[in-house]
């Protein structure tokens, strides 16, 4: 086992700067970026960094979007006397539920069925109401987005007086969050040496906002999107073979799309755990697999988003691990 090298000891003022009066003060921005950590052992190249978004206060990259979405709703007065509803497979839901808990705003989440029990339990622990929704909820007009359709119908019902929807798929505040925070953070953290950026198709706020910012700094930076196969089991990612493309997707900033299947994503997620001690979630596994397979990226720094950690997906891995790691 190799020795651990620590950065220089922080000064007393640095210690004081790490004391916070409100959990939301930990939300990331250019002055408080999430870590960029080199992947040392799991990939065939050594110029890849993952941006560890699970170091955010509510546990995922969606803290950024949620903060901007909530601020936008507060600024517009949308939340006065109304409850918040959102469709989410987990991370945005958790961030919104946490912020709702702080603000004493009731939060209802429409969540696709099949989302791991860990996520649903965390949401209920945060006081949110969780409406588990089949993808094929709409029997007549049915893209595979039942949770989104249900959230929209809740927001529109009762003449719109009860609920307001954050609408992370269409709300430009989501893109703006990444244009103003994730993009500048990565640019600064790589000293402008980034040559390629990898992120998954989902709400597309990360891809569009970060990609747009990075390309404004250097149009040669390649922005690569990761898409799962139809029928996948990779929460947070969207296959546009079965789901509608969100309004927040700007394909003009995307240079290429890599398809990743579940087995490869699960295998890479385990490899990142076992070779690098990176306790990443499944979408990170998909993104890292795409980086590992991609040819012609050159010597510049490659950055992949690590949207969340594995803690919410342990039940998925119990099935895959079988008796592995248990005494025989």
């Amino acid at each position: 086992m190799t020795a651990i090298t620590h950065p220089a000891s922080p000064s007393r003022s640095d210690y004081a700067a790490r004391r916070f009066e409100d959990i939301r003060d930990l939300l990331p921005d250019v002055n408080n970026p999430t870590p960029l950590v080199r992947v040392r052992n799991s990939l065939g190249v050594d110029n890849v960094y993952l941006k560890l978004e699970w170091m955010n206060p509510f546990g995922s990259i969606k803290d950024r979007a949620a903060a901007y979405l909530v601020q936008g709703m507060v600024d517009r007065g949308d939340l006065e006397g109304r409850e918040l509803v959102e469709a989410s497979s987990g991370n945005t839901a958790i961030a919104l539920a946490a912020m709702g808990a702080i603000n004493d705003t009731k939060v209802t989440i429409t969540i696709p069925d099949g989302v791991p029990e860990e996520t649903k339990t965390i949401l209920r622990m945060l006081g949110a109401e969780v409406w588990e929704t089949p993808d094929e909820l709409c029997p007549v007009d049915h893209p595979k987005d039942g949770a989104i359709a249900l959230a929209r119908s809740l927001a529109a019902s009762e003449n719109g007086t009860r609920y307001v929807m954050a609408d992370q798929y269409e709300n430009p505040d989501n893109v703006r969050a990444h244009f103003e925070t994730t993009g500048p953070e990565i640019w600064n953290q790589t000293d402008g040496q980034i040559s390629a950026f990898f992120a998954g198709f989902g709400t597309c706020g990360t891809l569009t906002g970060t990609g747009r910012y990075l390309k404004q700094q250097n149009p040669d930076i390649r922005v690569i999107a990761i898409e799962p196969q139809a029928g996948h089991r990779l929460p947070g990612l969207k296959s546009f073979a079965e789901a509608n493309e969100p309004g927040n997707l700007d394909r003009s900033v995307i240079d290429d799309v890599v398809m990743v299947d579940d087995d490869d994503a699960y295998a890479m997620t385990l490899r990142l755990h076992r070779r690098d001690g990176l306790m990443v979630g499944l979408s990170t596994g998909a993104i890292a697999h795409a980086i590992d397979q991609y040819d012609g990226l050159g010597d510049g720094l490659i950055v992949g988003v690590s949207p969340d950690a594995s803690t919410k997906y342990t039940s998925y891995f119990i099935e895959r691990l079988g008796n592995e790691g248990q005494p025989s």
Binding site: C138, P139, L150, S153, E158
Partner: peptide, 10 residues
Amino acid sequence: SGMLCPLPVY
């Protein structure tokens, strides 16, 4: 009453 589809289905 007052609910829009697919809420009644749900």
